[in-house]
Computed example of a mutant assay.
Amino acid sequence: MSAIPITARGAERLQQELHRLKTVERPQVIDAIAEARAQGDLSENAEYDAARERQGFIEGRISELEGTLSNAQVIDPTELEADGKAVFGSTVDIEDLETGERVVYQIVGDVEADIRNNLISVSSPVARALIGKRAGDVVEVNAPSGVREYEIIEVKYI
């Protein structure tokens, strides 16, 4: 399996989720299964079925997180020598030239992308357009709504 790029902050979040699943949620679901078993007939026990389904989800997520973390290539943006260029892990402040709207994105790996938190995947159209560019550069992004132009206001490594 190839290396999975991830920021140091993203790796820490995944480690925290893995720890929570193993130390809090897994024991809770085991207790719920034991409680449901104690009620007798399992063939018509909805609580048992729900707990088993939840256990399957938790175990699957634990396995997924362990696999991701074992193949992770952690990149710390604060240690990059990118000379002002937008690179993996950098935080980029851009302005839409048509609307004047400004937004700040951090370019992250696919597994940690979360648009609600302005974390965009390195493989997204916006990130691909930004990579290698500097403050003052104008980039074109082929969006579903058509071509958009953005000016890079600032590139930070935080």
Rank of each mutant, 00 (worst) to 15 (best):
E79H: 04
D76T: 11
R116W: 09
I94C: 00
E53V: 13
D49E: 09
E98Q: 15
A86V: 02
I131C: 02
E59G: 06
S121V: 10
V87M: 13
Q55F: 10
E66F: 06
A72I: 06
V104G: 00
E112V: 04
A51D: 01
T91Q: 09
A129H: 01
E95I: 12
S70R: 13
R54H: 10
Q73K: 14
R52C: 08
V74A: 08
E66Q: 15
I120S: 02
Q106N: 14
V74Q: 03
V122A: 15
L80P: 13
E64P: 04
I62N: 02
G89C: 04
E79R: 10
S70D: 14
R61K: 11
G56N: 09
G56F: 09
R102N: 12
G60H: 14
R54I: 14
E66K: 06
R54A: 12
V108W: 03
A51E: 00
D137L: 04
A129S: 07
G89V: 05
N118C: 13
E140P: 05
Y48H: 07
S121R: 01
G136S: 05
R52W: 05
G89H: 06
D49Y: 15
A127G: 00
S123F: 14
F57Y: 07
Y105F: 14
L130T: 04
K133D: 00
R54Q: 06
D96H: 04
T99F: 05
T78P: 15
A143H: 11
P125F: 02
G56K: 05
T68P: 01
A82K: 12
D110Y: 10
N71S: 11
E59S: 12
A135N: 05
D137R: 03
T78C: 15
G100A: 14
T91R: 07
A143C: 09
D114L: 06
P125G: 02
D83F: 14
I94V: 10
P125T: 04
R102C: 08
G109Q: 05
T99A: 11
T78L: 08
V138Q: 06
A127L: 00
R61C: 03
Y48S: 08
D137M: 06
D137E: 09
L130W: 06
E79G: 13
N71G: 11
E98G: 08
A50F: 11
I120M: 10
V108K: 01
Q106T: 15
V87T: 13
R102P: 06
D49M: 06
F57A: 13
E79W: 01
T99M: 07
P77K: 02
I62C: 04
E98L: 12
N71V: 06
S123G: 13
A82T: 12
I115D: 15
D114C: 07
S121D: 13
G132Q: 10
K85F: 01
E81H: 06
I107R: 02
G132P: 05
E112P: 02
G67C: 07
E98K: 07
S70M: 14
I94W: 01
E101N: 11
S121Y: 03
